[in-house]
Amino acid sequence: MNITVCIKQVPGTSEVEIDEKTGNLIREGIDTKMNPYDLYAIETAMKIKENNSAKINVISMGPPQAVEVIQEAYMMGADNGYLLTDKKFAGADVLATSYALSQGINKMDNYNLIICGKMTTDGDTAQVGPEIAEFLNIPHVANVKKIIDINSNSITVEMDMPKTVEIQEVKLPCLITVEKEIHQPRLPSFKLKLATAKRKVNNITFKDLDDSNPENFGLDGSPTQVLDVFPPTSDRVNERWKGTGKELGERISKKLKKLKFVKDN
């Protein structure tokens, strides 16, 4: 069985702020990490590998330094890594990202199962998984919280819905996106770090892909465009209270009574 896991490198801190006075973006630190939700995707693949013997291929689209998350995946037990990187992919929105990934996935080992994280902490759309599945023309199940069974023909999963849990049996190949509760991710192992230190990461660039039309990638292949960014505003009644703990506690209780959230007695 071949499993492909999609992983992304995201900013280590989420602190992008706008300086109210200058309108400039302030970004502290440039450290990066693996998208935390993708750790669950890798772990899910590892659990399948332990029980069924499988080969785990990971793919990440991003700048050259995104190779780091692939090395991290090696330290967790992934077998083979691909980095989809090209200047032509820059400025990609969800559609162009998913399309490029689907094209990249076609250049890798055949897959029986694709696993994505639930969402990324920077894009935060949870859309890339389903769109990849559409481009590959395979079924997908989002919000998988448990794998009940997997064999060479099908996978049976629990899909988390707000009021119900649906058990779906899906023919392979298919794509799933996994919830946090699926498995606790393991830590990268030092032994594997040494063992995989020299393992190479395969690069896939634009010219390797089947689709040779640059208009389908990056900014050109992105139907959505960011017009501008701005700090959030609000036009609310806005009082500021100061005082000692006792004064403030009393003042809040008075106000709550006045607003009829508590009975005045």
Partner: peptide, 29 residues
């Protein structure tokens, strides 16, 4: 923290230590 962003959306922004305020508030309710 008087500069906390939550005060931008709050109708009633109470600047102070929650450990001092909340016990007092509970007493009064």
């Amino acid at each position: 923290d008087p500069k906390a962003q939550i005060f931008d959306v709050a109708n009633y922004g109470i600047v102070g230590d929650l450990y001092e305020i909340i016990p007092e508030l509970i007493k009064k309710l």
